[in-house]
Amino acid sequence: MTTIGPIAARIEGNFNQASVKLARHLHDAGVFENAIGKPVPVVLHELEYYDGIARRTEAASPPGLADAFTAWVRNG
């Protein structure tokens, strides 16, 4: 576990960063708006919701777009 733990944490961190960057790129390129007809928040989540999920969701979505979701996560 002393070897696997840090490697798993790095993999998870890299995956989270890649997910945020991909979502922002798709937003910036207009992919979501063209496909759905309007901008929609990208919710990056796990089995439970916590502040890290709210921060990643905010980073993955244009400013203000995920406010209702992140407020719910933070205020429960």
Rank of each mutant, 00 (worst) to 15 (best):
P41C: 02
T57F: 01
H45N: 13
G64K: 06
E12A: 14
E46C: 15
T3V: 15
G76M: 06
G37R: 03
V42K: 00
H27K: 09
E33R: 15
P39L: 07
M1T: 10
N16R: 09
A71Q: 14
V43D: 07
A9W: 01
T70A: 02
R10N: 05
T57R: 03
E33T: 15
I7M: 05
R55N: 10
L47E: 09
Y49G: 03
G5A: 11
R24G: 02
V73L: 02
R24Q: 15
I7S: 02
F15N: 06
A68L: 11
P39D: 11
G52W: 04
V42M: 07
F32R: 03
H25S: 15
A8L: 09
A35G: 07
P6D: 00
P62F: 00
G64I: 03
G52S: 06
R74M: 06
A8V: 00
E58R: 15
G5P: 04
N34V: 12
H27L: 03
M1F: 08
F69N: 02
P62A: 04
T57S: 11
V20W: 02
I11R: 02
A23N: 02
G76I: 01
Q17W: 00
A71G: 14
G37A: 09
A29P: 09
A35M: 13
R74Y: 09
F32Y: 15
H27W: 06
D51V: 08
T70W: 05
E33N: 14
L26S: 09
T3K: 12
P63Y: 05
G76D: 10
A23M: 00
S19K: 05
A68E: 07
F32P: 03
A71D: 13
I53H: 07
E48I: 13
V42P: 04
K38A: 14
A60D: 08
N75G: 04
F69R: 05
F15A: 11
K21E: 14
G52C: 03
P39F: 03
L22E: 10
G37L: 03
V31T: 13
P63Q: 08
A68D: 12
I4R: 11
E46D: 13
P63H: 12
R55C: 06
N16Y: 01
